[in-house]
Amino acid sequence: MSTERLIDIFTLMANHESEDPHGSSLCSVAKEITELSGAGISITSEDGGQEQLCASNDVAQGLLDLEMTFNEGPGHDASQNGTASEVSDLMGEGGQRWTFYSPEAVKLGARAVFGFPIHIGAVVFGALSLYRDSTGPLSEEQSSSAYLMASVIGRAVLVMQTGVPRGAIANELQGQSTFDFSVHQASGILSVQAKLSVKDALIMLRAHAFAVDISPSELAHRIIDRGTRFDFQSRVWLETDPKNREYEEYGN
């Protein structure tokens, strides 16, 4: 099931990126894969603020603006709580949880809105906000697709934050939508070595894997096996040769 859907996502992303290399491919793919009216992605910055990454159309853009203006809405709730939020009828009882957002969102043309957290474990990157121009909940299939898309976006945002060209993202994400556990453990280790948050350690790990041209999980295994470490004092990566257990500088 997931393999086919992942392939759909990557095919869509590759198509969108070739048409519009600087544009909003992730949002367009999210909209298509969930079969909803539109999608927007907001990113949580280090100081807790929200930045907009992309929107698939004007309504989705308007909805992201409302969330930023009023500091409430489906994406806001999803990234705050780390769980999905859903209001299947903005004019109904459910819409009352967002006093300012709901009536304005209806004016823009949205009738149902959904928010999914974009996170890798405890690290929150932002939220995927989706809307539909008619009322009603998500089907199980649609919610599966939204979760899968949110995990792909999580890795895409991580890759963007390491500074690779955007055209390379679809290529980079091939394979599973999530990391294997070694990457999570290694980002924990690295956060202690480099005295960083786990989020920055994860970005640093990903960036270094790029720099030395190995997969994130291969680098992660080296970090876990204590063959590679980051030295806080000298700000360099060190590698041990198993034969002589002395650390050697490499690939900075």
């Binding site: 556990f181 453990q185 280790i189 202690v192 070595q193 786990v198």
Partner: peptide, 13 residues
Amino acid sequence: IVIEQAKGIIAEA
């Protein structure tokens, strides 16, 4: 995943 991230921190610290 949160547990794996925490394990990494504990193992190193």
